[in-house]
Design a protein around this nucleic acid. Sequence first.
DNA 1: CGTGAAACATTAGCGGC
DNA 2: GCCGCTAATGTTTCACG
Lengths: 160, 160
Amino acid sequence: MIYAQSSPGSYRPSYIAPSPKEGRLSNQDLADKVSLSPSPCLRRVRHLEELGVIKRYVAILDPIKVGVGLLAYVSIRLNKSNRGSGTSYSDFARDVQAWPEVVECFAMSGEMDYLLRVQVASLEQFSRFAMDKLMQHPSVVDMRTSFAMQTIKETTEISF
Amino acid sequence: MIYAQSSPGSYRPSYIAPSPKEGRLSNQDLADKVSLSPSPCLRRVRHLEELGVIKRYVAILDPIKVGVGLLAYVSIRLNKSNRGSGTSYSDFARDVQAWPEVVECFAMSGEMDYLLRVQVASLEQFSRFAMDKLMQHPSVVDMRTSFAMQTIKETTEISF
DNA sequence: CGTGAAACATTAGCGGC
DNA sequence: GCCGCTAATGTTTCACG
């Protein structure tokens, strides 16, 4: 996590440190790290939460241990016939929210329209998802899947 | 976050709830949610941490507010000439760790070898990254980039 | 921003099912 | 084995200087 400075209008970090419990640091420990006493430290954190700089706090689970060891990226092209009405795009966007297999979905530049990150237990479960949900969807006209065979790097840190 | 059941060997959740502060719930509140007293509740959480089911706790920041509002996915193909020695793959994997712009990197099935998730401030910063780091790299022979134009869904939740 | 005090939470040890 | 109690210690969160 990033501990923001007080400099108004800037969220450049004054201190960066990755560690398993960073997101659950006590306000007291955080105050020590940034050399501040607990009360202004808490006020700053609350402020960042209110501004939406901090969106939420989460626990990161091991996908394998939790039973979703297969990661796929799926590129999708949508039906353009009714582009004027905009239905394809919004229909698909709405339906994606309801599919738990899809953890991320972006509208992308390039040949494909959407990129989906799909997290499932097995190839079998992936194929059920692809056949029953994706390919059944009226807006989907093309689909290309790649599977992650190895994780080289995976972080939530932002550090420049 | 997922609160695991006591059933040995299974991490199927007994309770799922997304909310900004889930990852910072006090042990007391968590205990209430799962109808347990604080001490066994804490013991279970510690156990999940030791097993590695919970890998870490993080704060999720707003990429725009924190100055990395441009998201790109880059597919990369590596030099196969020295595949026998395995150098390309491991060299690239090592170097990726040092680039802060790359937040995720997977070895993928399909036409491309690696997929990179790149998070930067601007097109200009992206092009510096691509020119100076990616294309300069001796292992990289081909590269295809797509930019995220809109975020449809983005979650860290696992829920089946 | 920091201090202090009340309310609240964490955590180890122990007895019981 | 796993639960819940208790009690000491530590933390959060105010109002106020």
